[in-house]
Nucleic acid binder design. Structure first.
Lengths: 239, 239
DNA sequence: CCTTCCCTGTGATGTTCGTCACGCGCAGTC
DNA sequence: GACTGCGCGTGACGAACATCACAGGGAAGG
């Protein structure tokens, strides 16, 4: 059956077969059954704004498939991409739990399936199902650790090259594919967006990437980046 | 009764009267009773290392009184102070929950009382007491939000003056005292440590503070800083 | 096929800030 | 009192990077 955006839609968490290994979703049958009664499944096109920084929390979004970027912006219009969320992540949990405004904005980068849970339902769910609460705590822990990594990268890097090298290596760990040419990364972000991930400008990203290419550290083919000399990249970062 | 370091020691959580308002500690009587059976109370002098970045998690520390700095360091010896923890905070929770290495180091800035809970006990505690689990989730949410603020400050600030202005305003919110002269801050950190909080050097901090003094925005008296012109500081930051 | 728009590449220029260097003042300590 | 260590203040210099400006290329769409 054809579905919008060619997504493999799962309307039912109980019957969902990709739950295993996903921190949040991998819970007991009874808890999943409860989850099914309070969640609203939706398909969102690319570029959908799920929530905006500063908004009062309506609830959480569970990313079933697709990807979403979490951003924070200054009044001057400068934007920082805090993280690119992958399937299995719960978005907006901290704000929802605390009842404080969302601390970031979330926007889909691809057509994505999300489960939305209203705030009251979510809090009640956590209070009545210890395993859901534990899994949420794990999700939050992971998010906190990833935020710490970001802080390290922003605060301890001496140069922008170092930040970019760090980013490439991060990507090679999370989504790299080993080939004969070196690790292959599929980068669907523009230089502008990469710049926003490491707190610099578009031009600087272009220049550093050119520099890496000149030094035969990387090779760019369309939206693929091949890491030819991972050692060189590792040598550029401190820890 | 005189106690070491002039600390008001509380050996017993059940009878502790400062629990109210502390996200984690403010829990039901039964849960507190359980907490009392698994926790180890200790007094730590200034400069104690509770845990070190990269170490495997032994368990969590609940900060009863005193303050502790959370830091992360690069191999080059550069250090970044991620946060100064206040009483009521739980330290090391994310690493303990995930079973991954501590992502920061924790060191007391003053003589402090801490409750330590071993990892297994803590996990079991959370799994059997929903309210403890919820409170942990809240703690993690707060930490995540504060990490986000740090990321914003590091990534979106255009200049170092902006970061320093932001830091001063943050302090004025959390621990400022209003006086006729302006908001009074008691700063027990050296310029070096302030530099480590905003990812810059000692000299730059000295220079910017001198600059602020020259512009009559602040006044320094010993370890007190008076914010004379909070408006000017607010004008320097973007959001 | 031509136009438009967005992304990438690159040069010129100026500012900010890190680095090195040194002096000063103020506690402890012997 | 002299010595020592540590935190603060400040000058000089250079490197890294933001900013501005413009040109080329590829994709989409009429």
């Amino acid at each position: 059956m054809p579905t919008p955006y060619n997504l493999d839609v799962r309307n039912n968490c109980t019957e969902c077969n990709v739950r295993e290994g996903r921190t949040f979703c991998d819970m007991s049958d009874e808890t999943v059954a409860m989850l099914d009664t309070i969640k609203f499944t939706g398909i969102y096109p690319k570029g959908s704004l799920l929530f905006v920084e500063g908004e009062d929390p309506r609830g959480v979004f569970i990313l079933c498939s697709g990807r979403a970027k979490l951003t924070t912006s200054s009044t001057e219009g400068k934007t920082l991409i805090v993280k690119v969320a992958e399937p299995g992540e719960v978005l907006g949990a901290s704000a929802t739990i605390l009842g404080k405004p969302y601390e970031v904005s979330a926007e889909t980068l691809e057509p994505s399936q999300m489960n939305f849970i209203k705030r009251d339902d979510f809090l009640n769910f956590l209070n009545t199902h210890v395993d859901a609460c534990m899994h949420t705590a794990q999700q939050l822990s992971t998010k906190y650790q990833s935020a710490q990594r970001e802080i390290r990268s922003l605060g301890l890097s001496q140069t922008t090259s170092e930040k970019l090298a760090r980013l490439l290596l991060d990507w090679s760990v999370s989504g790299g594919e080993e080939t004969a040419r070196g690790t292959r990364l599929v980068v669907l972000l523009t230089h502008e967006e990469i710049a926003q991930m490491i707190g610099t400008t578009r031009e600087t990203v272009t220049r550093i990437l050119s520099d890496f290419k000149k030094k035969k550290i990387i090779e760019v083919k369309g939206s693929n980046i091949f890491l030819l000399e991972k050692k060189s990249l590792e040598g550029m970062i401190s820890t």
